[in-house]
Each structure stands twice: as structure tokens, then as C-alpha cells.
Design a protein around this nucleic acid. Structure first.
Lengths: 226, 226
DNA sequence: ATACTAATTCAACAGTTGTTGAAATTCAAA
DNA sequence: TTTGAATTTCAACAACTGTTGAATTAGTAT
């Protein structure tokens, strides 16, 4: 249940089983209790392994954290880039619509969160926490995700030829905030709405986010409106 | 510089000066290093007071955290509610526009962050961190801010009479994410844009957020489009 | 000056933290 | 079976954690 497709997928990432169990435990605990809120002992206890093994497989607690972050980052970049390329190949001559680009940016994440929830939920929560905290571990994520984001913004610029760079970046900022809070799955919306909405209803957000955000982009990044 | 208007404003909140210094130090350190990332000793060292004084003025570390959260919450609710009431009084007969409501929801915060940056920046960062973490201290913020949010959603429902509750709540979710990331002031956008945008440029976001978000609300919460 | 409370200091507690070194075990190649 | 490396266990370290009680000072009303 925790390692869904052992033989077929990800030939490189299949490291030592103990190492993977440590990463799993660390991922979950870092996500729900923050980095300093969890001790190496708690992590190793959840991983059912001796404390020292953490320092055999990783250089330090901080290194363990970095490896947790990096483990899934490459795959994430890959599928999102694939989605963007697919959209672009569907439009050999004209530019894709804003909706299509936003969808390529968000859909892979949300679908992962829907179809493989158990495997990805804690990683996404962790990314969300990092992403909205100024000090911490941000450089790591920035280094890994910013190139991808730049490619998307480039695509959006083509779809919105009258846009200013400033408008484009601020619009992306809003999109980023919306996506971040979504993948955090805080459950805050569940309470607020009195059960009408559910944070883990990915279909609900998949069909709404691109439309909402695309409308915002058009409002801000078109010549006519200002 | 740290206590800007001592004699005129907030007659109730003027507690013991030491207590205030502890709250200031705790606010800043909690915001940039997380709750468990900071020790009581570090806080009291920054506040230039003995460790034990933390337990004279507060029941526990957790209580200190709660008081940091609550200190500014009432004032925040007040000015946002005032802004909403002002908009509603400006429309005795018809409903306010979506822009106006969104603006009443966001503008007080952003203006505070612009005009009294030194006093409010860490509190907002802290709120942002809390808001996008599932487990932690969320109930406290939820209890304090949800009534206000419900009032705003009620106003939005009137401005968008064809909307579904579900669409309305999901739209608010997107707005909430955007606002949360903004007040976090992570500086991520500065790097990404290569200096074109600045996380602390409140004018930039003040003039963009309501327009962007209102367009999204209209796209999602109007009958014609779906 | 006296009495009394509010505020602050000092010293210490039991438990936990990240991390390390040496010894013991597992396991495949010779 | 012997060799040698990869993996796991056990015990311990100095430093730091949240928290408390008793002693001390500051400040105010009598």
C-alpha cells in the first residue's frame, strides 16, 4: 500500500528499503509537526529502526530533510513539463489558451493528490508549509521549481501578448498562493463551509481553479481593461 | 518605533511593558523559526529579560503563543468589519460590487502591512504559516476569523445571486490562498521575477488582487458561464 | 518606616535533543 | 569456510528543552 508499483516504475529511485522507510516516516512527521517539531528519535521510531541508522543513511537531520524534499521533486517537474509540452504540441501554430496552460500547471499535481493520495499527501503538505514560510528551506524548493515556473510564465506571456511582466508575475503569485493552500489540505474550508466543501475534493478544485485563475489572468494581463 | 501610539490608541491593550516586550520577541521568533524551532530561552534573551519571567507573565510556552496570536486579532477583525460596513452603507439599495467586497476584505490587511510594516510583518507571517499548516494552532485562528469570513461570504452571495454555495466557498478558498501567500512576504517572487516584483510592494498587490479575484469570482459564480 | 504586593533574579530538576564511536550482525563473493 | 564489506545495534556525550520554587528587589499605600 505504501510502495504501489515496485517493479515497473522509477528504476533509479529504488534505494535501500530501510532508507526509504526512514524517508517515508520523516516525510509524514515533518509535514504534520514541522522540522524542529520532530526529533530524529521520533522519526526512527515510526520507521521502526534504530536511531543511529538515520546517521548511517544520511549525513544529518538537515540532510534527511533535504532528501525528503528532493525525492519526489524530479518526478513532479517531469509530469508538469510533459503536460505543458503536450499543450504546446496541440497548438503548432496559434498559442494555447490561458486555461490550457493553467491546467497543465495545476492538473498534474491535483491528479496525483487525487489518485495516489496516500503516497503524496504528506509531501504536498510539506511543500506547502515550506512555500509559505519565508526563512526556511525555501532556497532548495526555489532552485528546483523556479525553472519550471519560468517556462510556464513564458508560455503565459505568449498567450497574453499585451501583458506587462509585472502583471504577469503578480498574477502568477496569486495562482501560486491558491495552489499552495490547496495542496496543503488544511481542512479549514470544511469547517467554514459547514461540510459543503471538502479540502480533499480534487475534482471540485480541478474544475474550478483553471477557470477562476484564467479569468483573473485575462482581467489583469490584457490591454483593453486598463 | 516599536510602540508607535502609546497614549492615543488601544486603551485596553496597554499591558505591562515587560509583557509586551516578551510578546514582541516571541512574535518575531515564532514567525521566522516556527513554534518548536524557538526555545523560551531564545525568546527571553531577545526580550532582554530573565527566563522565569516568561512563566510569571504567561502560563506556558503554548499560552505565550496563544497570546501572541490573540493580541492583534481583535483589531484586525475590527478594521475589516468596518471596511465591509462602509461598503454596505455606500449601497443602501443595490448590492456592492464584487470588487468592493474583495477590497474591503483585503485592503485593511495590506494597508497595515504597508503603513506599519515594522509592527505587523511578523504577525502576518505567523498567521500565514499557521493558515497553511493543517495540524497546528489552526483552531484558534479559525475560531477568531471564521465569523468574519462568513460575513464576507454572505455579502458576496448577495453580489452574486446566481452562485452556488459550493462555487462561492471554493472561490473564497482561492482568495484565501492568494492573500495568505501575500502576507507571508516570502520574497520568492522577487527571485523568480529577477527583481521586477517585490513581495513587500503592497501598492502592487492592492491594485491587482481585487481585480484579479473579482474576475475569478464572476467567472465561477455567475449563471451564464456554465 | 512598615507592610504588602508586584516584579524580577538565581539555581536547579528531569527529560530530550542531535550526533558519534565501537561492537555486533548480516550477507554475498572468494 | 574465510574474507570483507554493508548494515544494524548498543551505549553514551554534552548541550539544550520547558518548567518550577525559593529568595530577592522595586514600588506603593499606610
Amino acid at each position: 500500500m505504501n510502495t504501489p508499483n515496485r517493479s515497473t516504475a522509477e528504476p533509479l529511485a529504488n534505494g535501500h528499503p530501510t532508507r526509504e522507510r526512514i524517508l517515508d516516516a520523516a516525510e509524514e512527521l515533518f509535514a504534520i509537526k514541522t522540522y524542529e517539531g520532530v526529533s530524529v528519535r521520533q522519526i526512527m521510531s515510526k520507521a521502526e529502526a534504530d536511531v543511529s541508522l538515520a546517521y548511517y543513511h544520511f549525513k544529518s537531520k538537515r540532510d534527511l530533510f533535504d532528501q525528503v524534499m528532493l525525492r519526489r521533486a524530479a518526478h513532479l517537474n517531469e509530469i508538469r513539463l510533459d503536460a505543458l509540452r503536450a499543450v504546446e504540441q496541440r497548438h503548432p501554430d496559434d498559442a494555447p489558451t490561458v486555461e490550457e496552460i493553467i491546467d497543465a500547471f495545476t492538473h498534474p499535481l491535483l491528479e496525483l493528490l487525487r489518485n495516489q493520495h496516500d503516497e503524496w499527501q504528506y509531501y504536498f503538505r510539506l511543500v506547502a508549509n515550506i512555500n509559505s514560510s519565508a526563512e526556511w528551506g525555501g532556497e532548495l524548493m526555489t532552485r528546483y521549481f523556479d525553472p519550471l515556473v519560468s517556462r510556464f510564465i513564458e508560455a503565459l506571456r505568449k498567450a497574453l501578448p499585451d501583458s506587462t511582466d509585472e502583471d504577469l508575475y503578480w498574477s502568477y503569485h496569486i495562482l501560486s498562493g491558491a495552489l499552495t493552500l490547496t495542496i496543503a489540505e488544511t481542512g479549514r474550508l470544511d469547517n467554514l463551509s459547514g461540510g459543503i466543501c471538502h479540502s480533499d475534493d480534487m475534482d471540485g478544485i480541478i474544475e474550478r481553479m483553471p477557470r477562476f485563475v484564467a479569468a483573473g489572468f485575462r482581467e489583469l494581463c490584457s490591454k483593453k481593461s486598463r
